[in-house]
């Protein structure tokens, strides 16, 4: 069965990074033989002076196919991991949702979108998790991270939010690559311009520095822009709102 794992608020100003915590959890799942986790997506939540986020107010989510038999052990293990490894002063939260058992997907996705534009509280997060029949727990500090952990799963489920963790290695900066080649040899599923034009396999792309991919239409996409009659990969500045 497919499960979604969301975590938030495991870092502090000085220590840790929630993305690294998510990756550690993926490694544990692999090492225990519980599954082969999919890549992590990062979801930006609301930035507001009244939200006590520790550093970025972004949440991390990934999915994995896991057997029912391993689920409880995984949740216990993840809870212990967050408790033991999260940065001092952080407020970690963990959310685990079994795809086929989510009672109200619309409510879950709506919670995700709301966390991008509204100030939400823990009570709302726990109520939504209960309504949807999914696991939500806190593991230190104020436990405020439960809001982001739940929202991260809701946003990942929309298939239209966030960027993938890490960089994608293509060719060296300044070199060219065919779109068909990129799709055949990397995890990128589609190459699309910022204004929504999907490039065809025979088109050519000029590779830039620091390639990031985003989650759009349920796919891992590489965003590009047109300049001087050529397609170029977007840089950090172009995709900062994803």
């Amino acid at each position: 069965m497919k499960i979604y794992i969301g975590i938030d608020d495991t870092d502090s100003l000085e220590f840790g990074a929630t993305g690294q915590s998510a990756n550690e959890l993926r490694r544990i799942i692999k090492d225990k033989g519980w599954g082969e986790p999919e890549p992590v997506t990062r979801h930006q939540l609301l930035l507001h002076p009244d939200i006590p986020y520790t550093s970025h107010n972004s949440s991390m989510c990934f999915t994995v196919e896991m057997k029912e038999d391993n689920l409880k052990e995984f949740i216990d293990c993840a809870a212990e991991f967050l408790k033991e490894t999260s940065a001092p002063g952080s407020d970690p939260g963990l959310c685990v949702a079994v795809n086929e058992r989510i009672k109200d997907i619309d409510e879950l996705m709506s919670f995700g979108f709301k966390a991008k534009v509204e100030i939400l509280n823990k009570e709302e997060a726990y109520k939504t998790a209960e309504d949807c029949g999914i696991h939500l727990s806190e593991h230190g500090g104020t436990g405020q991270g439960v809001i982001g952990a739940l929202a991260g799963i809701g946003l990942r489920m929309t298939g239209n939010d966030g960027r993938f963790q890490g960089r994608t290695k293509l060719k060296d900066t300044g070199e060219s690559m065919g779109i068909g080649d990129i799709i055949a040899t990397t995890e990128i599923e589609e190459v699309q311009s910022i204004d929504g034009h999907v490039l065809t396999d025979d088109e050519i792309l000029i590779i830039g520095d620091k390639i990031k991919t985003v989650l759009l239409d349920g796919k891992r996409k590489l965003l590009v822009y047109r300049e001087n009659d050529g397609w170029h990969t977007c840089n950090n500045q172009h995709i900062k709102n994803y």
Binding site: D11, G19, L47, H56, G166, R167, D209, Q237
Partner: peptide, 21 residues
Amino acid sequence: DEDEMVADEAVSCYNCRYRRW
């Protein structure tokens, strides 16, 4: 952390651990 960097210049307040948006 690399996932939180937004500026293309490596050394930038926008990429600094101590900036809070």
